[in-house]
């Protein structure tokens, strides 16, 4: 089962009425989709809105998803279209900000602002990337190799096993251990920034 078929298995669940299964796809692809949206708009809030809209649109259109292409390719196209629509509608709008706009007063808006502009969050973001990359460097060679083959080279377990000349079970274990070590460092960062 490739990653694509794993996505299809999740999509099947959603198409059968298991709405919650879609959250797996949101949590999986949020990083990529936000990054795509960021290429079209400079404002972080706008990138978030575009990404959110893209996920909702994809969910609404999921019953018609046949699986001819990879889910990510399909989601990527939806995101690009959403970003383009956003840009074209924004060109039509005037550039001034209405301070009496109900959006500014809404608690949802304030909540968003606090989440985005919180300096702790910004620092944590920079730190998260740094911690992950630095921890990766300190990993034992076989763990580092295994996770790099998987995440960067996008190799299957079978290919990695062949490359590293070890059983698939070992590959599975190595990748898991690498993730766990990095994740532990990340949670240490989160707990220290929460204090």
């Amino acid at each position: 089962m490739s990653e694509q078929t794993a996505d299809l298995a999740i999509i099947r669940q959603v198409q059968q009425g298991h709405k919650q299964a879609y959250n797996l796809l949101v949590r999986k692809y949020q990083y990529k989709i936000i990054s795509v949206a960021q290429k079209y708009v400079s404002c972080p809030n706008d990138a978030q809105d575009i990404a959110q809209e893209a996920f909702i649109k994809a969910y609404q259109a999921l019953p018609t998803f046949r699986g001819d292409s990879a889910f990510y390719t399909w989601l990527y196209r939806i995101t690009v279209n959403t970003a383009m629509n956003y840009l074209s509608s924004n060109v039509k709008k005037s550039s001034f900000v209405d301070i009496d706009s109900p959006e500014i007063d809404s608690s949802e808006g304030l909540e968003k602002l606090s989440q985005v502009d919180n300096p702790e969050n910004i620092l944590e973001g920079v730190d998260a990337q740094r911690v992950i990359v630095e921890t990766l460097k300190t990993l034992p060679e076989e763990l580092r190799q295994a996770i790099v083959y998987r995440e960067i080279e996008e190799m299957s377990y079978e290919q990695i096993a062949e490359k590293m000349d070890c059983p698939i079970g070992t590959v599975r274990s190595r990748i898991f251990r690498a993730r766990e070590i990095i994740e532990r460092e990340l949670s240490l960062l989160s707990s220290s920034s929460a204090k």
Binding site: K32, S35, Q38, V133, I147, E151
Partner: peptide, 16 residues
């Protein structure tokens, strides 16, 4: 998230 960071695809944390 770890995978995205390793691939250099992790957006700013404030967005996530």
């Amino acid at each position: 998230k770890i995978g995205a960071a390793i691939r250099g695809e992790l957006p700013n944390e404030e967005l996530i």
